[in-house]
């Protein structure tokens, strides 16, 4: 078996593969060059590709995303890094008003083939302005592809698809997953956008997650199996395109579903998925559609407080037991 790689290494590897493949791909962001990124997710890129492909910027989120956009519209495929996903708010005009709308409002005259990568979510104790899970922000804007991988090989495979997409992509890398390990990706590995991954098959209940919540629900499924409850586990991988068909197919088999999401319940992506399941899967359901989401509070700094506001393995197992038993 090949050596395992970390999620963090996979980010740099995924970018490097695209830089090698296509000379029109460039990187732009803060501290991504010789500094190799504050999360070391661009490690080795500056050494291999140099300053003509890896561009360090000032702390100017609007200039970073705006310049990437102008370049994307004129023959380049930029990968822009916004260091923490909380900072998407600093360039929200570009994320919400510009990138996703230009194709439409020009009547299809212009494409914006670019990726905005960003470190998302909690788990590292960075407090309310550096620990938010904001994938739901991106979901609210028609015209953005929204990607959030959970494993190293998915990071590489989805990065390939994101960079090659002719549509703008928000690529959420998860801070709490950077140190996790997984199988390396084979050469030429590409994971299509909008194709969920059934990580574990089951018959009693469907557990759906994304990025951070994947290790939670995989562990929950393991514990449930020991109790004789067979859980099917789905990694959505992308919020847009959303593989709703995969979830509906699973619910047709299991008749129960729990959606486990890190972002706040208030406006969280699970609400959109739950509405689809409640509507189109209604006749398959033997229990209410359930969501376990972050509490609707700012992210607390202290670990013991953060543990209170995020979904847990225990809560997932408890809820699954009640749904299946009830």
């Amino acid at each position: 078996m090949a050596e395992l790689i970390t999620y963090r290494e996979a980010v740099a590897e995924g970018i490097a593969r695209e830089l090698r493949r296509d000379p029109s791909v460039v990187c732009i962001g803060e501290d991504i060059g010789a500094g190799e990124g504050v999360f070391k997710t661009t490690a080795g890129l500056f050494a291999e590709f140099g300053p003509t492909r890896i561009w360090d910027t000032p702390i100017s989120e609007q200039a970073i995303v705006g310049a990437a956009m102008g370049a994307a519209m004129t023959g380049v495929r930029p990968i822009a890094e916004i260091m923490f996903s909380d900072f998407l708010a600093c360039c929200w005009d570009f994320i919400a008003n510009e990138m996703p709308k230009v194709r439409y409002m020009t009547g299809g005259q212009v494409s914006v083939p670019m990726v905005v990568r960003t470190a998302n979510g909690g788990g590292l104790g960075f407090g309310a302005q550096h620990s938010q899970a904001v994938e739901n922000w991106a979901l609210t804007v028609p015209g953005l592809i929204v990607v959030a991988p959970s494993t190293p090989s998915d990071v590489i495979g989805l990065m390939a698809s994101a960079v090659r997409s002719d549509d703008p992509v928000i690529f959420f890398e998860h801070k709490a997953l950077f140190a996790t390990k997984g199988e390396p990706a084979p050469a030429g590995h590409v994971v299509p956008l909008g194709k969920a991954n059934v990580c574990r098959e089951g018959t009693d209940i469907t557990l759906v997650g994304l990025a951070w919540s994947m290790p939670i629900i995989l562990e929950a499924a393991e514990l449930l199996a020991a109790e004789g409850i067979s859980a099917e586990v789905i990694d959505l991988r992308c919020l847009v395109p959303l593989d709703a068909a995969c979830v509906l197919e699973s619910v047709a088999k299991t008749s129960r579903i729990i959606i486990v999401e890190e972002n706040p319940f208030q406006g969280g992506w699970g609400g959109t998925l739950a509405s689809i399941v409640a509507d189109e899967g209604f006749h398959d359901l033997d229990a209410p559609v359930k969501r376990l989401a972050g509490a609707s509070v700012p992210a607390p700094f202290a670990k013991h407080l953060e543990d209170q506001v995020l979904p847990s393995v225990g809560a997932t197992v408890d809820l699954a037991r009640r749904l299946v038993g009830g």
Binding site: S24, V26, T52, W55, Q62, A63, V65, G66, A67, A68, M69, G70, A71, A72, M73, T74, G75, V76, P78, D93, F94, N97, E98, V102, M105, T106, G107, Q109, V110
Partner: peptide
Amino acid sequence: TSAANNMMGSYAIIGSHIPMAVGSAWSAVL
């Protein structure tokens, strides 16, 4: 917008296109 003439658009959020013009200039360098 007249992309055929490299007139890359008109933007209604004040100032938003100024970084984009920097981007097309960067693109020319690249």
